[in-house]
Design a protein around this nucleic acid. Structure first.
Lengths: 188, 188
DNA sequence: ACCTGAACACCGTTCAAGT
DNA sequence: ACCTGAACACCGTTCAAGT
């Protein structure tokens, strides 16, 4: 069976419009949040009607996958540039999440469609965490911990007077092998 | 100013219908997920039309707050009954999340409307965590870590072959003051 | 006090038809 | 190859009207 090499080319000729749409979608999402990201509004931004978008994306989910890929790429860049220790990674992770709240929740808040994602994107984002944490189990736990604290912070789940810098520091300490010994408190 | 005692009564006479609606909504949510929870379908379950629901709830958000309160109550019960150590709490938390995936994400995945929540519900769920973790910063970090790992697990974000029991164990170890010393791996 | 039908302003998506 | 209008099956919500 000769499948040719067409499936291997990443960007074909008529992809310009598609990328234009992804860029406009990203802008809509980052500026006005998830509820603003509708096929009709996106079409409006491009000067076309909603049904035309279905020539470029099979459905809305495919558009969101493109945005997720962008989010994972940005997170990968962020973590690679961070100081290679637990404190450095958590600080970088938190900053990126707070600076891109809507892209952050779209990127992390739904199932990962691994088959539809550009290959390597997930691995690249995970690599610095794995390197610093040492083994995959601790890496997954630490990643999840940072995700949990970031998403609770973004969702405004903590009391207004909560000291979140301290909570982030406690999280980093918990996963740092060289953390200072924690004295067990006296039980009176 | 005499405000009377009416505001203090928790359940008034005509609340039966409302509680019936909350129970039906919970069933809809747990069985068929968030997308199944619509005002029209809920009304259908009760044998009425959607507009009638607005005599019992100002809007859909208020219905969801009632479900969140139920979720927080159940989590409080679960954590209070758990063995009072880090491993016991995380195991209980994970089990409850996996057994109630849809109620879990509704309860934890949106902003906390503290003013509309029955008082004490949040505090009761947090109390066992605070007791075991010792201080509020570590408590928030550990809570967030468990939330992060539970929600990533529920969303299917890990590779199919990932050992999530080990990830949960690593998380518990990180927050356990009496954890065994972690040898730093040789860098060859 | 509770419920209704009709309507409004939205969704995602399909499809025959146009260029 | 790309875009269109019209339509379908949904949403949450409002409101005048019925009992």
């Amino acid at each position: 069976m000769d499948t040719g090499c067409a499936t291997a080319t990443v960007t074909s000729v008529g992809e310009a419009r598609r990328e234009q749409a992804v860029a406009a979608a990203l802008e809509l999402l980052e500026q006005d949040g998830e509820t603003a990201l509708t096929m009709r509004r996106l079409a409006g931004q491009l000067g076309i009607r909603a049904p035309s978008l279905y020539k470029h994306f099979p459905n809305k989910a495919a558009l969101e996958v493109a945005l997720m890929a962008e989010g994972l790429r940005q997170m990968g860049d962020t973590l690679e540039a961070a100081p290679p220790d637990v404190a450095g990674l958590t600080r970088a992770y938190r900053s990126w999440a707070l600076e891109h709240p809507h892209l952050y929740s779209l990127t992390t808040g739904r199932p990962l469609p691994r088959d539809e994602l550009p290959s390597g994107v997930e691995e690249r984002a995970a690599a610095p965490v794995l390197r610093v944490l040492g083994d995959e189990h601790r890496a997954r736990a630490a990643w999840a911990a940072a995700h949990g604290l970031a998403s609770l912070e973004l969702a405004g789940r903590f009391p207004p007077d909560a000291d979140l810098d301290a909570a982030w520091a406690a999280l980093a300490t918990a996963f740092d092998r060289r953390r200072p010994a924690q004295p067990v408190r006296e039980t009176r």
